[in-house]
C-alpha cells in the first residue's frame, strides 16, 4: 500500500499534472512537491494520486558509479 510508482510528467497546470505510467495517462497532484521544481519531462514518484518526490536521475547515476568503483576494487 505504500507503493509509489515512477511516472513521467507530460503536462502541468497549476498544481495538477498529467502523468504517464506505462503508456497510461492519469492525473496527479503536485501539491506535495511544490518546492521540487518539477517540470514537464521529469519523473516523479506517485502514490495514491499525489507526486511525493521528484526522481533525480543524476543521483541514481552517481550512486551506481560509486558502487561500480567499490565493486571493481579487489
Amino acid at each position: 500500500m505504500c507503493l509509489a510508482i515512477p511516472a513521467k510528467v507530460v503536462r502541468i497546470e497549476g498544481d495538477r499534472a498529467e502523468i504517464e505510467v506505462g503508456g497510461v495517462r492519469r492525473e496527479a497532484s503536485l501539491a506535495l512537491v511544490a518546492d521540487a521544481g518539477v517540470s514537464v519531462g521529469d519523473y516523479v514518484l506517485v502514490h495514491t494520486g499525489y507526486a511525493i518526490a521528484k526522481i533525480r536521475e543524476d543521483e541514481a547515476e552517481e550512486i551506481l558509479k560509486a558502487w561500480k568503483e567499490v565493486l571493481s576494487e579487489g
Partner: peptide, 18 residues
C-alpha cells in the same frame, strides 16, 4: 541512504509540515 534518487535527508518537508 542508497535511495538518494528519491529520498532526501530531511524528507519531504511539505508533506511533514502538512
Amino acid at each position: 541512504n542508497e535511495y538518494t534518487r528519491a529520498v532526501r535527508e530531511e524528507g519531504n518537508v511539505i508533506a511533514l509540515k502538512s
